[in-house]
């Protein structure tokens, strides 16, 4: 998604020329990734093919089950307007169906101008944007301040999880999104 077209240069901030890298936030695509990893493993370890095939099948089955559960839990998010810190939730929104209407920091790595924030606040009020998403490795203050000024709920998500496994990372994310309307 979002592979830049045309001229790419630093005036757009820290962008990724090969497209948005936050792909793991869509677990349907993680199934494909698991498939590709299995192919790589088999290529280098033909003797273990049976084991790799079996592991893949059981992982994909587990993922399917989880995807169903996650989608049901996050159903209320469908077409909800959301503001995010960076363009890092594109895959999550593509999967769960919420709409990213604007970004706090539109050019990755370059602090936003006051004009952008002012128009963002006005837009959020007029469109009743009630949710702001950010990651835990950014300074939480901008998102929290924006939340306070607009009345929107702020969720700081841990999208990488350190040493936790993929399913528990996604479990935590969905848990936070699911509980977002509970004060």
């Amino acid at each position: 998604m979002e592979i830049p077209e045309g001229k790419i240069d630093r005036t757009q901030g820290d962008i990724h020329p090969l497209g948005n890298p936050h792909v793991w936030l869509d677990p349907r695509r993680v199934k494909v990734i698991a498939q590709i990893i299995k192919e790589g493993l088999v290529k280098n370890d033909a003797a273990g093919q049976d084991v790799h095939e079996k592991n893949l099948a059981s992982y994909q089955q587990k993922l399917d089950q989880k995807i169903n559960e996650w989608q049901t839990r996050a159903k209320t998010l469908r077409s909800v307007p959301v503001v995010t810190y960076h363009k890092s939730f594109s895959y999550l929104s593509d999967w769960l169906g919420f709409q990213v209407v604007d970004y706090l920091e539109p050019k990755p790595g370059i602090p936003p101008s006051p004009g952008h924030i002012l128009s963002l606040i006005d837009m959020m009020k007029s469109k009743h944007v009630s949710l702001i998403l950010s990651e835990n490795y950014y300074n939480p203050v901008p998102a929290q301040e924006l939340g306070q000024k607009t009345g929107a709920k702020v969720l700081i998500l841990d999208t990488e999880g350190g040493d936790k496994d993929y399913i528990s990372v996604m479990d935590t994310i969905i848990g936070k999104l699911d509980g977002r309307l509970v004060p």
Binding site: P111, P112, P114, I117, N139, V141, P142, E145
Partner: peptide, 8 residues
Amino acid sequence: SGNILWVT
């Protein structure tokens, strides 16, 4: 670069 815009 700091973030003087968000000072509370």
